[in-house]
Amino acid sequence: MSAKHEEDVVSRRDFLFLGAGAWAAVGGAAAIWPFVDQMNPDASTKALASIEVDITPVQVGQAITVLWRGKPVFIRHRTAEEIAAAEKDDETAMPDPQKDGDRVQKKEWLILVGVCTHLGCVPGGQKASDIRGDFGGWFCPCHGSHYDNSGRIRKGPAPLNLAVPSYKFLTDTVVQIG
């Protein structure tokens, strides 16, 4: 056997060895996925997708909280002053700039996911007796985030505005959330 021939054999071995090792790694990684993915929301959790809410009883200036996908959703019947205050601030500098008009379908109904975008507490401001913070909307007591009349973050550690869930008005008095 020539020296050259021997070298060829070795490199062929190496190639097969590395190839097999790489495939084993890919297969191993693929096999791990089901063990991780089982922790993600299951079919029954995903099925609880939407709810319908009758908003007839909510007077101007009042707010209700409903549970959707395990999270509170705020539905606020805003007063004319609250709408005006929210629109007046549209051009003010804030951490997550957004126009009030882009956050509502009907000006008087503000619908938000009531989960602070900092670390997930439920901000106060739904009840008349709640502290509503420096901007008159909601105040999260956990680490002091202030939200305005449009649910936009104005002060404190939260990085984003209160989320607007997907919703539609089925009639003038019934909204479907989700």
């Binding site: 922790m39 993600n40 929301p41 299951d42 959790t45 996908r69 395990g70 999270k71």
Partner: peptide, 12 residues
């Protein structure tokens, strides 16, 4: 969501 197994802390 992976940690919760849902959209908030709950039964899962």
């Amino acid at each position: 969501e992976l940690l919760w197994g849902g959209y908030a802390v709950g039964q899962p």
